[in-house]
């Protein structure tokens, strides 16, 4: 699908002091629209949040090694794709 809109990973910061958290992914033609789509899909327009979007293809992720302890439980930052963490209460209903 040569003309598919790229996939973006979405990170949202709710209130002061909290860092951005990965909330999921979406498709958009460019960063500007990705931010708007993120607002509609993942915050349902709640004001006062900060949104980061990163094109999924640009994310470097740690990868389990081919040998050795393949399956150590890891809380690794595999951002490559959606993890759908809960959004903090203060961000509002979704």
């Amino acid at each position: 699908m040569k003309n598919e809109w790229p996939l973006w990973e979405v990170f949202i910061r709710g209130q002061h002091g909290m860092s951005h958290r990965h909330v999921g992914s979406l498709h958009a033609p460019d960063a500007e629209h990705a931010i708007k789509n993120a607002r509609d899909v993942y915050t349902r327009r709640n004001e006062g949040v900060s949104i980061w979007v990163v094109e999924a293809a640009n994310i470097a992720a740690s990868s389990p090694s081919d040998k050795g302890p393949l399956y150590e439980p890891s809380e690794s930052k595999v951002y490559r794709h959606p993890t759908f963490f809960d959004i903090p209460e203060e961000v509002g209903a979704m």
């Binding site: 699908m1 598919e4 996939l7 999921g24 992914s25 498709h27 490559r80 794709h81």
Partner: peptide, 23 residues
């Protein structure tokens, strides 16, 4: 529609694109 979107994204982590699934 949002649920569909989340699920397509979950499927995409397995190496298939949303447009392919849609087709």
């Amino acid at each position: 529609a949002g649920h569909g979107l989340y699920l397509y994204c979950a499927a995409e982590t397995l190496g298939i694109s949303r447009d392919e699934l849609t087709e």
